[in-house]
């Protein structure tokens, strides 16, 4: 499916100017629906340049350096693409991208994005709510977690030839996190279809968590009873936890999490609890020891 079928380019261009002129964080097209989240990104959160968003990436499937994904991602073929949704649910299905676009209305959200390495961006995503998507498959009551998997295709994802992680990449959310209105499945940035280096054609976005939770190029989603063993927890359980919520009070062994460098700025700025989405997500973790469940 081409970009044009989703929304004409002229509307995207208008949206871009809307984003530039507004700090509301959501496009006018979806304003009414998400009025309760009137400030996804605040006054001093100007969207990061498209150039930076599409050139400076962590996507180990294409290499570990931040310039690698842009260089190597052209090999990935995203047509055709199908996503298998299953596990503990009443109507498991395998969908191609056309089906997925038909199921969901595309909207736009500007979110802060904080990488565990201490840098951050502001990204105008397009896509749809994860909750709305998941409900189509009617999850069972005993589904407590959602597990996501990235494509495994080492001949195209050449980073998978090295064993720096145990492929395929696995991520997960607790059911209530997945059903949270902020959780988002993205298909585009700045109104353009996602580029391969950004996780085309479908990726997760959970803005209150470190970036690596926002799994890219998803091919499999399943409802699970037990907490999935995610790739980073598997590779280094001392450094990475399942939740990985942005938290300035819990340091990573090789870098402090108290501050971050917003791409495009020289000086570091303070990192906000839950990346500034505390008001929205506090309730998810209210009885948890965040030092233990980091």
């Amino acid at each position: 499916m081409s970009d044009l079928k989703i929304t004409p380019k002229s509307i995207y261009l208008k949206r871009r100017s809307f984003i530039k002129n507004s700090f509301l964080g959501i496009s006018s097209l979806s304003l009414s629906k998400f009025a309760q989240f009137s400030s996804f990104a605040s006054q001093n959160d100007k969207p990061t340049s498209y150039e930076a968003i599409t050139s400076y990436n962590n996507f180990y499937e294409f290499g570990t350096s931040k310039s690698d994904p842009k260089k190597n991602a052209f090999r990935l073929t995203t047509h055709p693409w199908s996503v298998e949704v299953g596990g503990l649910c009443r109507s498991p299905k395998t969908l191609d991208m056309d089906d997925i676009f038909k199921l969901n209305k595309i909207e736009e959200r500007v979110y802060r994005f904080r990488c565990v390495e201490g840098w951050s961006m502001v990204i105008p995503w397009t896509g749809f709510s994860l909750r709305d998507f998941l409900l189509h498959f009617e999850p069972d009551d005993n589904a407590r977690y959602v597990k996501f998997e990235t494509l495994y295709r080492p001949e195209e994802m050449i980073g998978q030839k090295s064993n720096i992680l145990d492929w395929p990449y696995v991520e997960g959310l607790r059911m209530d996190e997945a059903m949270h209105p902020l959780s988002f499945l993205s298909t585009g940035i700045y109104g353009e279809s996602l580029l391969n280096q950004n996780g085309a054609p479908l990726r997760l976005v959970t803005p209150w968590k470190y970036g690596f939770k926002s799994i890219k190029s998803i091919v499999k989603i399943s409802f699970e009873r037990d907490m999935p063993l995610t790739s980073w927890v598997k590779s280094n359980p001392k450094e990475y936890g399942f939740y990985s919520n942005v938290n300035p009070d819990v340091d990573h062994p090789r870098w402090s999490q108290k501050t971050e460098r917003r791409i495009g700025e020289w000086l570091r700025r303070k990192t906000l609890m839950y990346n500034g989405y505390g008001e929205e997500v506090n309730d998810l973790y209210k009885n948890m020891d965040l030092k233990k469940w980091f």
């Binding site: 990573h252 062994p253 090789r254 870098w255 402090s256 108290k258 501050t259 000086l267 570091r268």
Partner: peptide, 18 residues
């Protein structure tokens, strides 16, 4: 000038021994 801003060198030694 650019890396240690809101926390000191000493804290940095603790969180990042390298």
């Amino acid at each position: 000038f650019f890396e240690i801003e809101s926390f000191g060198v000493y804290e940095d030694f603790q969180t990042r021994p390298f």
